[in-house]
């Protein structure tokens, strides 16, 4: 288990900023995220008829007119990393990104309990957790690019 002091980042941190006042509750971020994390990277293929519906790593919560997307904050002091028993959850010191390695994940759910933001989701089918990885390989994460109202914006 790592200690808090060892987490100091060295590079620029990209984060997704969540703006409740602009979230329109369309849930499109969930779909774009899920498709991005589907092998096909294609909405139609990921959600085609008869297929298992994939899950994204972002979740929109709503209560009346209030709605916002829950997505990993990539905290400076990531409680999930401290709580992880298997070393699956790590913080990339260069980018400040909190990354999760499903191969090492034992599905103990400690990170879910530890995360104050509720942004780590349980992937029941695979028996591991899933969380935002800021879409490696993409300039802008899929949820940010797909949000029709800039309720999710990328800050650096």
């Amino acid at each position: 288990m790592k200690k808090a002091g060892e987490m100091k980042r060295t590079g620029a941190v990209r984060k997704i900023q969540i703006r409740e006042e602009a979230c329109i509750g369309c849930h499109l971020c969930e779909f774009y995220c899920a498709a991005e994390h589907h092998p096909s990277k294609d909405l139609l293929k990921a959600f085609g008829p008869g297929r298992e519906r994939p899950r994204g790593r972002v979740r929109v919560v709503e209560e009346g007119p209030v709605s916002f997307a829950l997505v990993c904050r990539h905290c400076d002091e990531p409680l999930c990393v401290f709580a992880c028993v298997s070393g699956a959850m790590e913080r990339d010191l260069e980018t400040g990104k909190v990354i999760h390695d499903p191969e090492r994940c034992v599905g103990c759910l400690s990170c879910i309990l530890a995360c104050a933001n509720g942004t780590i989701l349980w992937d029941e089918k695979r028996g591991v957790v899933a969380k935002c990885d800021l879409c490696p390989g993409r300039e802008v994460p899929a949820c940010v690019a797909g949000c029709p109202n800039e309720a999710l914006i990328l800050t650096e």
Binding site: R19, E21, A22, C23, I24, G25, G64, P65, S67, N149, E150, A151
Partner: peptide
């Protein structure tokens, strides 16, 4: 489109930044 309305869930569809 959140323009000509005062219903909060609709009005917030118009992000003033955008």
């Amino acid at each position: 489109w959140g323009i000509c309305t005062n219903r909060p869930e609709l009005a917030k569809r118009l992000n003033p930044d955008v």
